[in-house]
C-alpha cells in the first residue's frame, strides 16, 4: 500500500524478505538454543515438538540463518563502512539514548550505532556458525577439547547476540516510523530528515 507517493523507498522487497528469513530463523534459534542453555528455558522445547526435535532442528536452522545472513552481509556491507562522522555520533550516543537527537551529527543511511550493530552481528554470526559446527555431534566428531571450547564460545556468543538483537528490535520500536521499513519498505520524508538527514539529502536531492 502506498500511503503517500512522496514516501521514500528504504528497502526493496528482496531485502525485506531476506531480512525476515534471517529474523525468523534467529528467533527460532534463540528459543531452541536457550532451552539447552539453561533449565529455566527448557519448556520452550515444546514449541518444536520436544527436546529431541529442538536438538535436531536447531543446527539446520543455524545453517539457513548463516546462509541468509551472508546474503544480507554482502547487500549492506558497503553501506556500513565507518566514517569520522559516525565516530562523532557514537561519542555522543548518550544524547540519542536520552531522546535528544535533534542536533546530533547528520547521518547517512545508517548511523554509527547501526553500523556497530552490523559488524558486531556479523562477528557473532561467524563465531556461532563455526562453534555450532563443532557442537554438531550428529554429523561431526571433533576432538573433545575443541568441542568444549566450541561450547563455551557458542553459549557466550549466543547470549551476547540475543542481547544485541533485543537492542536492535527495541531501537526499531522506539524510533517511531521505523518498523514499516521492514513491512513494506518505505519511510516518511520527515522520518528520514530527522534521523538520517544525509541520506535524505542524497535521495531527495534537497
Amino acid at each position: 500500500m502506498i500511503r503517500n507517493p512522496k514516501d521514500l523507498k528504504r528497502y526493496t522487497a528482496q531485502e525485506r524478505a531476506n531480512h525476515w528469513v534471517v529474523g525468523i530463523s534467529f528467533i527460532l534459534l534463540a528459543i531452541s538454543g536457550l532451552a539447552f542453555f539453561h533449565p529455566a528455558f527448557w519448556p520452550m522445547t515444546q514449541l518444536f515438538g520436544g527436546g529431541v526435535w529442538a536438538r535436531i532442528l536447531h543446527p539446520f536452522l543455524g545453517v539457513l540463518m548463516a546462509l541468509s545472513f551472508l546474503s544480507i552481509f554482502f547487500r549492506f556491507r558497503s553501506l556500513n563502512v565507518m566514517t569520522p562522522t559516525d565516530r562523532e555520533w557514537l561519542s555522543r550516543a548518550k544524547e540519542m539514548v536520552d531522546g535528544n537527537d535533534h542536533d546530533m551529527p547528520e547521518q547517512g543511511k545508517y548511523n554509527g550505532g547501526q553500523k556497530m550493530m552490523f559488524w558486531a552481528l556479523a562477528l557473532c554470526m561467524l563465531l556461532l556458525m563455526v562453534s555450532g559446527v563443532l557442537l554438531w555431534r550428529a554429523y561431526f566428531g571433533f576432538p573433545v577439547e575443541l568441542v568444549r571450547f566450541g561450547a563455551v564460545i557458542h553459549a557466550a556468543t549466543a547470549a551476547v547476540m540475543i542481547a544485541l538483537i533485543m537492542v536492535h528490535i527495541y531501537a526499531a520500536i522506539w524510533v517511531k516510523g521505523t518498523v514499516r521499513a521492514m513491512w513494506y519498505g518505505t519511510v516518511t520524508r520527515a522520518w528520514a530528515k530527522q534521523h538520517h538527514r544525509a541520506w535524505y539529502r542524497q535521495v531527495t536531492g534537497k
Binding site: 539514548v97 531522546g99 522506539w174 517511531k176 516510523g177
Partner: peptide
Amino acid sequence: HYVTKGPNEV
C-alpha cells in the same frame, strides 16, 4: 527506557 524517556517520535 520506553516508559521513562517515551518514544522517539518524528
